[in-house]
């Protein structure tokens, strides 16, 4: 069982989601390089962290459901975890940066 055995009804949307997720994450990380101040850069990885990760995890759910031939939704756990925890790190970093830029 591998990626080539997935039936077409799952492979087509999964492929679309994977391409979207990959491009979003790439653009988000590119922002780390192209934006010129830290306060602008902090917004860029959020793209990969929310919609990029969401697309990839949805595709993973589709593929594993099609391969196991029963609903497999435990990737929801990672989605929820990322959605809740990524903002916490960003907020802490933001406050640290504000504190350090005042000194």
């Amino acid at each position: 069982m591998s990626a080539a055995d997935v039936p077409l009804w799952a492979a087509l949307p999964a492929a679309l989601l994977l391409i979207c997720g990959g491009l979003l994450t790439l653009v988000g990380s590119l922002g780390l390089l192209r934006l010129d101040s830290f306060f602008a850069r902090i917004h860029a990885p959020t793209m990969g962290g929310t919609l990029g990760a969401g697309c990839v995890l949805l595709a993973s759910m589709l593929v594993s459901t099609a391969l196991a031939q029963r609903p497999v939704i435990h990737e929801l756990l990672i989605t929820l975890f990322i959605l809740i925890t990524a903002p916490v790190t960003t907020m802490l970093l933001m406050r640290a940066a504000i504190l350090r830029s005042k000194e």
Partner: peptide, 28 residues
Amino acid sequence: LSIIVTGTPGTVWSGHDPTTNVLTLHVL
């Protein structure tokens, strides 16, 4: 609210004053 604001790209929650209840928001 803080998770929604920070999870949306382009805005980051950057401080909240509990006495005056004023939110500081950072916008790209």
